[in-house]
Amino acid sequence: MAILESKGLSKSFGSKKALDGVDLKVEPGRIVGLLGPNGSGKTTLIKLANGLLVPSAGQILVNGLAPGVETKKIVSFLPERSCVPDWMSAGQLAGFYADFYGDFDRQAAENMMARLEIDTKAKIRHLSKGTREKLQLIMVMSRRAKLYLLDEPIGGVDPAARDYILDTIISNYNPTASVVISTHLISDVEKVLDDVIFINNGHIVLSAPADELREQQGKSVDQIFREVFKC
């Protein structure tokens, strides 16, 4: 069974259609790039999978279930910007995740914080923006989830931080789980992707395994993306 599946999924905001009849399947154990320019519908799709939005038409299923309390137990979500409560300390944040998620590996989180020299007693509001984003990623990747939904995890960070973030994702995700990485920075993530989904104006325009695509077209995914989305 697909870990994430949508059937005729549409979402409108007023007269604007953010997603229009999207059909997709993400199989377990795959790292999938959800690739598209800004405003293409990537974030809307991820929000729908998290139950943060309700579809206008069609359906989205996580492990065969509509988003709800049960699916939230197996989905680990990284929002596009840092959203952690800034009054907490890093240690309190780890306690918060451990309280609510049975699959949270606190030891793994503490090890990653130690490697980044994040003081667990420091208030989050006193950390730099980059460190706050890394801290949030640490919390998300310390879960042994079945599906990781990462919305623009490398957007707005420097190249060194991008490498750290991708390393953290690759070295911490549960290999039987799936990871969906939404981004428009293709060249940075291309090396880790098993499958790619191109999305534009709320439609899926291409969906294929990354290696197959590269072989067929003799180009990198980044080059294909630039051709497909040429302005």
Binding site: N50, G51, L52, P79, C83, F100, Y101
Partner: peptide, 13 residues
């Protein structure tokens, strides 16, 4: 607001 991204993705009703 922003913290809602964390709170609404917790496994609670």
């Amino acid at each position: 607001r922003d913290e809602g991204y964390i709170m609404h993705t917790l496994p609670v009703s």
